[in-house]
Design a protein around this nucleic acid. Structure first.
Ligand SMILES: [Mn+2]
Ligand SMILES: [Mn+2]
Ligand SMILES: [Mn+2]
Ligand SMILES: [Mn+2]
Lengths: 224, 224
DNA sequence: AAAAAAATTTAGACTAGACTAAAATATTTT
DNA sequence: AAAATATTTTAGTCTAGTCTAAATTTTTTT
């Protein structure tokens, strides 16, 4: 019985919910991510449990099995590699690639993804700074912190976003804060938790709390 | 009402049947191409007629409408461009790309195909020598003939295949007859309609009638 | 420890797309 | 022009995936 696209999408949703805390993913949480009704989720959970991709206890939520974990990791790998292809090779902007990758991730074929990975130069991260698991399903972690958690005086480089919405990504473009942009945190304003930063090209920007909570920064060794 | 993958595949099947002669495509012919039952085809013909993509007369077969023709041409364009991508960029062999392109052709997204086309250098032909319609749906034709129809003494270049099966393509690989290979027709054997040819690299081959009826050759100006 | 609220599951219905078997229509043969 | 054959359509059924409304279970509040 081959896995369907719908099943793959549910597995990914469960993976992403369970990623945060290690507790079972609850029906309503899955319904929210999948933008569907709780009843539909329950139906699907039964199918996934039948296929041994999750363990399911009524009213208690679900957890991925070994196999379910493997499949969802592979799906995320495919999604992120296609996103790299779309930006690096076809010239799409980082706010345009998600829906396309959402379709491309389901393409099935022996050797396709490994060839794509190779063609792209085995990228470690996607256009949003998210890590790409390798063919064995292993992740490379990176030391990064939300801008909101940094102390004034520190500097770093923009390495990722938590909010992946097109509006946020386009706002960052307008601010000149692409991945790789340098920022030094100058001061924090207690009144509304906004901050002032200096960018690599010497501009000063005030960023709202919402921005600081969605922007990942990798600290530079502030040595010498 | 967006078009489904199944509907797209039927449109392509109808296009390819109607391509040969201009008569309406009959239910059984469509069923054969789609590898499904005549009853399923009838169901789908009703849906396609409802969507105004075909004109359908009971028991009399179907014809593509203007819109149906446009959609099937666009689908063939997508299929063949993806095949070029898979061979040229990812290094797949020409006998490996069909099933992948069969999935990729259904990816929907603004600008995707035009960007892909551009990335590939606006190729005119796919890895099997089939023409790729441009963004406006226009085809470039090429003067080519089946090897079976040529006269001894003529020479030309392999430009395409009629049989797209992996076994035929692999056999051609073994014979060293990729697209672009030069061949001169030395003699025809009336007994079984096989022929002897000389290849560009000086080898002599005997090719069966089946091969000669599935191999397209573009004649060289046999001048001077 | 009830009662109220929230979360989840069940029941029943719907569509797309497939199937098989039977009925209807068209084509070919005699 | 019948009869035989081939083709096509209809009828009825099935599965995946969705929905809404109702019933059930769990959690929270009083
Ligand atoms: Mn994405
Ligand atoms: Mn991404
Ligand atoms: Mn193909
Ligand atoms: Mn092709």
């Amino acid at each position: 019985m081959p896995i369907t696209q719908a099943e793959e999408n549910y597995l990914k949703a469960i993976f992403k919910i369970a990623e945060k805390d290690d507790k079972p993913a609850l029906t309503n949480a899955i319904a929210a991510v999948m933008q569907t009704s709780a009843a539909s989720v329950t139906d699907m959970l039964k199918r996934l449990a039948d296929k041994q991709l999750i363990t399911y206890e009524k009213y208690r939520g679900v957890q991925l099995t070994e196999e379910g974990h493997r499949l969802s990791t592979a799906l995320i790998r495919r999604h992120r590699l296609w996103e790299v292809f779309l930006t690096e090779k076809l010239g799409f902007a980082w706010d345009e690639v998600h829906d396309l990758a959402e379709q491309l991730e389901h393409i099935q074929g022996n050797g396709l993804i490994d060839r794509l990975d190779n063609f792209l130069g085995n990228p470690g991260f996607d256009p949003h700074g998210d890590p790409i698991p390798n063919a064995e399903g292993h992740w490379t972690y990176r030391n990064q912190s939300l801008l909101a958690t940094l102390q004034p005086g520190t500097q770093g480089v923009v390495t990722g976003v938590d909010d992946h919405s097109a509006t946020f990504l386009q706002y960052l473009d307008q601010l000149g804060l692409a991945l790789g942009a340098q920022v030094s945190l100058l001061e924090q304003f207690p009144y509304d938790h906004s901050v002032r930063v200096r960018t690599g090209d010497g501009r000063e920007l005030v960023l709202s709390e919402k921005v600081t909570k969605n922007l990942y920064i990798k600290l530079l060794e502030s040595g010498n």
